[in-house]
Simulated scan of single mutants.
Amino acid sequence: MKRVKELRGMMMEADPSVAVSMRKMVMVSLMEVFKDIAPTYRIRPLTHAEKSTKVKKETQQLREFEESLVSQYKFYLEDLEQTIKDWKQKKRKRSQVVSFQSYRSLAEVSVRCLCELLLTMPHFNFHNNIIVTLVPLMNDPLKTVSDMCCDAFRKLFQEDRVGGASLATVRVISGLIKSLNYSVRPEEVEMKKDLEATATKKKFMTNKEKKKNLSRMQRKWKKAEEKLEKELLEAEASESKERKTKLHTETLNIIFLIYFRILKKAQKSVLLPVVLEGLANFAHLINLEFFDDLLNVLQNLIQSGNLTNRESLHCIQTVFTILSGQGQIVLLCL
């Protein structure tokens, strides 16, 4: 970790002839180092009681390593974020050796590193900090930056099997759209099938073939091991399914909240066509309590005459989807 600290210090290179290239190489190098040495779990801070308890030498060494790792990773993320801020604010900090144009290229490398960490280390510390930094950049005027961020979040949504990272992202997006008064650029998101379902399956030895190579005692232990593993997987799957359902439900609620805000408060927004298309695709997931208000808003939109033919069709499709599902209950009550 001392070497990591020394390497991070090289991001402050002041020699004008090598400053830009040196900083870029250090940014990328540190990104790869952290990807390699970070554990597959989030490191939590120790409690006062844990710090005062005597532990084995190996345990203490591990604690010191983890504490130093989190510290250096935090400083590294702050360096990347500060580089982006300096570029956005047109500041020339950290000496005058780097021009504003060079800061732009440094900022692009910083964004690229953060996008990579967003996708490869969603389990590790400060992942939400990365999300908070990158989400506003999806709306950045510089196309190379906005494209990098949009592509990274599309991939995150596709690869997030649990839903925690997606929920955190949607929360930040919701806040950003509201703070900018719905003045953000709409980006197309392709609906892709689950890649895992179509992935080519590798051939493995069958259980019967494996058992042929085992002794009687080994087969007995193997059978007991498989039974235990099956029970553990069933318990884990039940808990995982419940957690995923909760996260996905909350994510959907925030997405629909964004949709309804735009429908009611920002009907002139460039986001309206995307919202109507989203509603047409996901209307069957909307809670029953929102149906009455939503139908009224859609009716007013169609009657306003301000929609294109495609947008009007999305409104009609949404209405039919609602009324063909849970919406039948609404009709029966009228």
Rank of each mutant, 00 (worst) to 15 (best):
R23Q: 15
E234M: 11
M22D: 00
E242Y: 07
L119F: 04
E81T: 06
H123D: 08
R42E: 06
V330S: 14
F100N: 05
V111K: 01
K227V: 13
E78Q: 10
G175L: 09
I43L: 01
F291G: 00
M217N: 08
A237W: 10
K223E: 13
F75H: 01
G305I: 08
E66F: 02
T198S: 14
E311L: 03
E239H: 08
L46T: 01
V20P: 00
S110H: 03
Y73C: 09
V162W: 04
T144C: 12
E67F: 03
N129M: 06
M10S: 08
A168V: 05
V319S: 11
E242L: 12
A197M: 11
R161D: 08
K192Y: 00
T47R: 13
K208V: 11
L137Q: 06
T206M: 03
A237K: 15
P39Y: 02
E66C: 01
Y182R: 11
L313C: 05
L263H: 04
D151K: 11
Q60K: 15
W221R: 15
I43S: 04
F100E: 11
M31Q: 14
E231G: 06
N213P: 00
S102N: 15
N253Q: 07
R310Y: 07
S324I: 03
V135Q: 00
V172T: 10
L80A: 06
V172L: 09
S215D: 13
V297D: 10
A266H: 07
Y103M: 10
M121R: 13
Q218C: 04
Y73S: 05
E242A: 15
K93P: 00
Q218T: 07
P45K: 01
E159D: 14
E231L: 14
Y259R: 06
I131R: 07
F260I: 11
Y259Q: 06
A197Q: 15
E250T: 10
P122L: 04
L106M: 07
E231Y: 09
V33S: 03
Q82G: 02
K93R: 13
K91P: 03
G325T: 09
K24V: 01
K201T: 06
I37S: 02
I286M: 01
E234Q: 14
R161S: 12
Q82P: 00
L298S: 05
N128M: 09
E225P: 00
N128S: 15
V26I: 15
P141R: 09
I286C: 02
L298P: 10
S105M: 07
Q101L: 05
L331E: 01
F65W: 10
D140R: 08
P122R: 03
L195A: 13
K90R: 13
K223G: 00
E289N: 11
G325R: 05
K91V: 01
E231C: 04
K211W: 06
I322D: 00
I258A: 01
S304R: 02
E116K: 12
V33Q: 05
A107N: 03
S21H: 03
L46S: 08
K193F: 12
K90H: 14
E234C: 03
E13N: 04
K143C: 03
V111H: 01
R154H: 15
W87K: 05
L295M: 10
I43A: 02
V132S: 12
L214W: 13
M217V: 12
F320Y: 08
E116V: 07
